[in-house]
Amino acid sequence: KELVLALYDYQEKSPREVTMKKGDILTLLNSTNKDWWKVEVNGRQGFVPAAYVKKL
């Protein structure tokens, strides 16, 4: 599985998104969309802005 690092805090704005804190390590589930990547964090799956994370 591929991991990404949260570069910034992000507060979810819809049920399809997830909240993350700067420094969190997230599991990358899908990065086919250039703007929104699907990740898993704390057992929850959802989208975060691709610009807010970096592949490890």
Rank of each mutant, 00 (worst) to 15 (best):
N42G: 13
Q45N: 09
M20C: 06
T19R: 05
F47W: 14
L5R: 08
V41M: 10
E40M: 08
V53R: 00
L28N: 01
K55C: 07
R16I: 14
E40S: 09
A6M: 02
Y10H: 04
G46E: 02
S14I: 05
A6Y: 02
F47L: 11
P15Y: 11
M20V: 12
W37Q: 01
E2T: 13
E17H: 07
Y10I: 01
L3Q: 12
E17D: 06
K54I: 14
W37A: 04
K38Q: 15
A51I: 11
V18L: 14
A50L: 02
V53G: 02
T27I: 15
Y10A: 01
T32E: 15
L28T: 01
N42M: 10
E2K: 09
T32F: 11
V4N: 01
K21S: 11
R16L: 15
Y8V: 14
K34S: 13
P49E: 01
Q11G: 09
V4T: 03
L5K: 08
K55N: 09
K1I: 14
K22F: 05
N30G: 07
S14Y: 08
D35H: 15
N30V: 10
E2F: 13
G43A: 07
Q11I: 15
K54W: 10
V4I: 09
T27K: 12
F47T: 03
L26K: 00
Y8P: 00
K13E: 09
D24E: 13
L3W: 12
N30R: 06
K13V: 10
A6I: 02
E40T: 06
T19G: 10
L56R: 03
Y8W: 11
M20Q: 02
T32K: 11
K34Y: 10
V4E: 00
L7K: 06
G23F: 05
L3I: 11
L28W: 01
V39G: 00
L3N: 06
K34E: 15
W37N: 01
K54A: 14
Y52M: 12
D9G: 06
Y10R: 03
N30Y: 08
K22S: 08
A51T: 11
R16Q: 12
L28M: 04
A51Q: 12
T32Q: 13
W36Y: 09
V53A: 03
Y52W: 07
T32I: 12
L56C: 08
Y10C: 01
K21W: 10
E2Y: 11
L7D: 02
G23L: 03
D9Q: 04
Q45V: 13
W37I: 05
V18C: 08
M20P: 00
W36C: 06
K38G: 06
S14F: 07
K54V: 14
L29Q: 05
W36H: 03
V39D: 00
L7E: 04
G43H: 08
L29F: 04
P49S: 02
D9F: 05
L26Y: 12
V39Q: 00
G43L: 06
V48N: 00
K34I: 10
T27E: 14
K34F: 10
P15G: 13
K55V: 12
L28G: 01
D9R: 03
G43Q: 07
I25H: 05
D24V: 05
N42P: 09
K21T: 11
K54P: 01
E2H: 09
F47Q: 04
T27F: 14
K38R: 12
L28V: 07
Q11W: 13
L26T: 01
I25V: 12
V18S: 02
E12I: 07
K38A: 10
Y52K: 07
G23S: 04
T27W: 13
W36S: 03
T27M: 15
V4P: 00
E2W: 15
T27D: 06
G46L: 05
K13Y: 05
V48I: 09
Y52G: 07
T32V: 11
T19Y: 04
N42Y: 11
A50D: 01
K54C: 09
T27Q: 14
V18A: 06
F47S: 03
Q45I: 12
E40F: 07
N30W: 09
W37S: 03
V39C: 04
D35K: 11
K21Y: 12
P15W: 11
R16D: 14
K55H: 11
D35P: 03
T19A: 08
G46F: 05
Q45F: 10
K34Q: 10
A6W: 02
V39F: 00
Y8K: 14
K34D: 13
E2L: 11
R44P: 01
V41S: 13
G23T: 02
L29H: 07
T32C: 10
G46W: 03
K1S: 12
L29V: 13
K21R: 12
T32G: 11
R44T: 10
N33T: 07
T19V: 03
K38N: 07
G23R: 02
D9I: 02
T19P: 08
I25T: 07
V41W: 09
K55S: 10
K22R: 13
S31W: 10
E17V: 05
E40C: 08
E40Q: 10
Y8M: 12
G46P: 01
E17S: 07
R44S: 07
A50K: 07
L29A: 02
M20L: 11
S14L: 09
A6G: 03
L26G: 11
D9K: 03
W36M: 06
V48K: 00
K38F: 15
M20F: 14
L5P: 01
K54M: 15
Q11T: 15
K54G: 11
F47K: 03
L26H: 04
K13P: 05
V41P: 00
A6E: 00
E40A: 09
G23C: 06
A51G: 11
G23K: 02
G43F: 06
V48H: 00
K21F: 12
M20T: 04
N42D: 13
Y8A: 14
L3M: 15
Q11R: 12
A50N: 03
D24Q: 13
D35C: 09
A50F: 02
N30P: 03
K13C: 09
V53M: 06
S14D: 13
L5C: 08
S31Y: 08
E2R: 11
